[in-house]
Amino acid sequence: MSESDLFQGHAYLFFKPHEVRFVDAAVARIIPADDLGPGAKEAGVTRFIDRQLASPWGTSSRQYRLGPWQPGSPRQGNQSPLIPQEIYRYGIQDMDRYCLKEKGKSFEFLSADVQEALLKAMESGQIELNTISCKKFFSLLHKNTIEGFFSDPMHGGNHNKIGWRLIGFPGVAGSAYPDWLGRYNEPYRVEPVSILDIEQGKVSLDAEGNPKHIFINPQ
């Protein structure tokens, strides 16, 4: 891992320090660092989620929130009044309590294998939490981890474009695509370009206003 691969320290808007530790540990199991490269923790996904929770989304600002609140069939979608801020806050609190009772330690201090088993149990709804459905908490955590790992680094995750490098996504599109479209089975692999890169002046633009892509395996 090079210097730039390391996610530097960060001050948080919503999370408390122990919540940061929990989310860091959980996202590191959802997308782990392994021989393919850094994972969600290294990509700054915790910072991404923190920023989202502090945004209007964190309080479900665009959700229909009038009652009566009543449970329906799964096909009728989410009918819980809990907002994302509450799901994370209560979810982490509940999981901490559960882990201390069952495993003797908070989630973040357990081994990777135990953490993974716990997340699997949450995913399949096998852990009884005090306030919220463990399945609901896991599902949100999972969704936000994916979003944070693969969205533009301007949102706080995908640090150093770790997610895009993993899959070969070039980021902001280049001008050569119309010509390249007919070059069948020839991989177009470039150093990914983010909106953040462009705004930071790290990448030059062509006459079309698109970034000049730099090929990483010369064609």
Partner: peptide, 25 residues
């Protein structure tokens, strides 16, 4: 559409209670 102001309600069949689509899906 900002669902906080307006959404649709949905049920699969007439014998169910329709519930609001609270999030975009």
């Amino acid at each position: 559409q900002n669902l906080s102001r307006e959404t649709v309600t949905f049920r699969n069949a007439m014998n169910e209670t329709a519930l609001p689509m609270r999030d975009i899906g």
